[in-house]
């Protein structure tokens, strides 16, 4: 009884308050904290360390945005979301942005009413098999049992791939990546399929990584990126250009080591000057201080530094840049001009 009255009162209060919704940027500034949706735990992309401090490739995007808006990369309130809760959390305003290895798809961008502000990792679905199986291509997997996470796009991609190539397979459904690892190692399936970044991370944890090989076929496009709600374009701009600032910083050689020096006085490269606010008023155009990009870059380094620190070749996950190299190095990572 008491509770229903409470809910009723809150709902009525909500109808009254709903009309006067402030802009996300003002909310964040007033709160002094960015609410950022992240994974509940994915190796390299987002996980708390022993002290409860979140770190990872996606987490770094949250920190950069917090640094750009609030000047403090630690002023982030990380909200762990699952595959099911992530979109509602964003749509309902519980979080200001979502940086949770989420694939940019047509329906998510349009029907679900979100705005993907860019791509921070180009992923794709791959296969891992034991070397002993003697398979060198995914097309040799005719009749194989394959461990697959249920309810994901990977499940649908797998069905498409096998149908296109006119070969058969037997799915072994698993719930989580951890379960997939265990089932695969226990021999419950001949092959395990998930995003290639996940496969690399998984393989790195094996006792004998050399006994397993990741097949060359990538059977789907999974562009992962941060997203925000439809309707607040100013906020979307801030998140989009913070990501672009990290990418541009790598292209122009601005790193966490030299960013303070480069931002102290105008240098020779006008693009860097505009980016770091020593020239022009780019920060004011998106409602931020002029040193916003400097703060974002100082938070965790440029895109390349973030990549190397969390998932790069010197980490246990050991991903090569591949598609995620700068466009100047033959990759797809490309920031529009800061002008």
């Amino acid at each position: 009884m008491k509770k229903s009255v409470l809910f009723g009162a809150l709902t009525t209060a909500g109808l009254a308050a709903g009309a006067a919704q402030a802009a996300t940027l003002d909310d964040v500034k007033e709160r002094g904290e960015l609410n950022c949706g992240v994974v509940t735990g994915l190796a390299g992309f987002g996980a708390p360390d022993a002290n409860g401090v979140w770190e990872g490739f996606d987490v770094a995007v949250c920190r950069a945005v917090a640094a750009a808006v609030l000047g403090d990369p630690m002023a982030v309130n990380f909200v762990p979301t699952t595959g099911q809760t992530r979109f509602t959390a964003l749509a309902s305003g519980e979080i200001d942005m979502l940086a949770r290895n989420t694939t940019w798809t047509f329906s998510r961008d349009t029907d679900l009413k979100f705005d993907f502000v860019g791509v921070n990792y180009y992923d794709g679905q791959g296969f891992i098999v034991p070397t002993a199986l003697g398979v060198s291509s995914a097309k040799d997997l005719d009749g194989a049992t394959i461990c697959i996470q249920t309810g994901t796009t990977t499940e649908l991609n797998l069905a498409d791939f096998f149908r296109n190539n006119n070969i058969s397979y037997e799915p072994v459904p698993v719930e989580t990546n951890a379960e997939g690892q265990q089932q695969y190692l226990a021999g419950a399936c001949d092959a395990y399929t998930t995003d290639a970044s996940g496969l690399a991370a998984t393989r790195a944890t094996f006792e004998n990584p050399g006994d397993h090989v990741i097949l060359p076929e990538i059977i789907s496009k999974e562009p992962l990126g941060p997203l925000v709600r439809h309707g607040d374009n100013e906020w979307a701009d801030i998140v989009r250009w913070t990501l672009n600032a990290l990418i541009a910083a790598e292209e122009y050689g601005v790193t966490s080591a030299n960013v303070n020096e480069l931002a102290s006085a105008p240098g020779t490269n006008p693009e860097v000057n505009r980016l770091l606010g020593t020239e022009g008023e780019l920060g004011g155009m998106i409602g931020l201080e002029n040193d916003w990009a400097k703060n974002a870059i100082a938070a965790g380094g440029n895109y390349g530094e973030i990549f190397e620190k969390n998932i790069g070749e010197n980490t246990p996950i050991g991903l090569a840049r591949g598609l995620n190299a700068q466009w100047t190095n033959g990759g797809l990572i490309y920031a529009p001009p800061f002008r």
Binding site: G14, A16, A17, G18, D27, A91, S92
Partner: peptide, 8 residues
């Protein structure tokens, strides 16, 4: 979340 006022 949908019933409660945005921001609460």
């Amino acid at each position: 979340n949908y019933f409660l006022p945005p921001g609460t």
